[in-house]
Design a protein around this nucleic acid. Structure first.
Lengths: 338, 338
DNA sequence: CTGAAAGCGCTTACAG
DNA sequence: CTGAAAGCGCTTACAG
């Protein structure tokens, strides 16, 4: 059944729809696209003919003729992180019902790999781009600017005019975690982080600055692993930290995976949480609310970021300048038992 | 910068590459596609010109001219389930380096939504399709058959000639869980399930049949919720079950989310696990090995399924009949503390 | 090994 | 409101 070397697709074409409905292909095209100038009676006939033939427009022909595809490109640094999955799913659920195809590029936390993705995906003439954060190569920036394709940035914020972004302040999130721990009377506060992307570092900065202002920052309590995060790693880093600094009484983790690993390891060792060490996670993954003790975490609006970024982009595609090009969706400290 | 209504893309074309390298467009096309008949010296010049211009072929034009895209369509029932994310990521990592675009369709566990996805995605003239399971509408089957596009089925197995599938026996997985619990002397065995897709039911069948053979099947101990699974639901169903049947001494959960919720709920209530109730999960998600107690689970080869299915499809695209069209990748009971 | 011609299935731009 | 002509940027099929 596999046709090789054929020129035709074997699928019904616009011309066949036009012939069956007794109009020209252009009129059929207009009717099917919902262009208003077509007489209602003709439009109906065209739709019936299309239905009867099982006609679905060839996106390649459409893209070639109009110099514009029906795709949106989303670039994320990872698919292993639940954070991006939630965002991606929300984007998908906004774009698909509008007939837009979501092309997903995974940069694996590598800005050069991202540059290649941009180069290749731009050839698809996407309607728009959804990018993660602002860290990229100069060449990537040039490619994006030269393409003229509308972009919306996700996760981080940048209020520069002409830049669209949907996210929240990563630094403030770090600061809030620090203030929470300080408010509980904790003084020996650590930051445990892995997969040191720009956002993890920004949260660390916010955390550090708040501790410095409170006069209790100790650089020795910053445990930064460049490797990917995982629950197992969280337990290991927690043990490392407590072995070297048994007096630590509060920890902010750059994400819930690490925090969950630590809480489970503490439970296994019979350590009292939060009496001995208070813990704050980040993202508020589903399991966190159910751990024993329940994990205090910072809930991030990751689905809302995807949804809002998608809608902001949709607005940009219609050519109207965005009313709110910088959308701070905030975050929420969810205080639980840890 | 957004060009609306323009016919051209503003990007360098094959003709410009050809002009710069002093050959005809056809020769440039052949050189860029690596067609062997081009003289090495010319091919080099073409590649240099393409590099210099930053030329990337227009996929729409290519697809239209060759009646074949560079896309692979993957249809999954959910993006909220880690299982499919792992599979998707593996597929992505096989296809992308070969220049194939992965189009992801999410059917939300609805075979009619899947039918729409199939209808629409077939218009993209994908090189191949990767489908989840075998449950679909008659119309979907007809569309797929009529298209002649090669398909590989994932997760479940079907040895029918001409059908390609990569997965494992869901029934056997249920049977293995039952045998494990029976081997530990457990007699009052329950199945707790949610999101009752065909695979969840197949696992339940395998579990039931084994219990029936052992003479200890009790239909009252089958707790089947049609709602999506979650950790929270796992805790609730666990409580429901124990309230109604305090004598239950072993539970098989249709996935680890439910099992994790149950183990956490048991811990919160101070129940002894596995002394009072033994638990077996399914999928072996990352957290399961770290819970207290560590969860016994059935590890599924979800990344391997994605990888192998992708490779099987790649073989089919080359027109060679698959040497192994039915790939049983098995599963592994990982016995831990629960 | 190379190329001139034709065509893929649509939409744009221009008439009427 | 409708349509004939042209063209998008490639590749196929056929020559040589």
């Amino acid at each position: 059944m596999t046709r090789t070397g054929s020129r035709t697709t074997g699928r019904p074409t616009l011309s066949e729809v036009a012939r069956l409905s007794g109009v020209s292909p252009i009129t059929a095209s207009r009717a099917l696209r919902g262009v208003a100038t077509v007489a209602p009676a003709l439009a109906l006939k065209v739709h019936e003919a299309a239905q009867q033939l099982g006609y679905v427009a060839n996106p390649a022909a459409r893209a070639l003729a109009s110099a514009q595809s029906q795709s949106i490109v989303v670039l994320v640094p990872s698919l292993s992180n639940q954070l991006f999955i939630d965002t991606l799913e929300a984007i998908h659920d906004v774009m698909r019902p509008r007939g837009l195809e979501v092309l997903i590029g995974n940069s694996h936390y590598d800005i050069h790999e991202e540059e290649n993705l941009i180069r290749n995906y731009l050839a698809y003439q996407p309607r728009g781009l959804l990018l993660t954060g602002f860290e990229r190569t100069e060449a990537s920036r040039r490619l994006l600017a030269a393409s003229g394709v509308p972009c919306v940035h996700m996760m981080e914020l940048d209020a520069t005019p002409g830049v669209a972004s949907v996210g929240f302040s990563q630094e403030q999130a770090g600061a809030v975690a620090a203030r929470h721990l300080l408010s509980r009377g904790r003084k020996r506060l650590a930051y445990i982080a892995a997969q040191l992307d720009p956002r993890v570092l920004q949260r660390g900065d916010g955390f550090r600055q708040t501790l410095q202002a409170a006069g209790c920052f100790d650089p020795a309590l910053q445990l930064m692993a460049p490797t990917p995060s995982s629950i197992g790693l969280g337990g290991e880093l927690f043990n490392d930290l407590l072995r070297r600094h048994p007096d630590v009484d509060g920890i902010f983790f750059c994400n819930d995976d690490l925090a969950q690993g630590a809480i489970l390891e503490a439970s296994r060792q019979g350590l009292k949480i939060p009496e001995q060490v208070a813990m704050v996670g980040f993202n508020d993954l589903p399991a966190s609310a159910h751990l024993v003790p329940r994990l205090t975490s910072i809930r991030t609006p990751r689905a809302a970021i995807g949804r809002q970024a998608a809608q902001l982009l949709l607005g940009l595609l219609d050519g109207k300048p965005a009313a709110h090009p910088t959308q701070d969706l905030g975050f929420e400290l969810v205080v639980r038992e840890s």
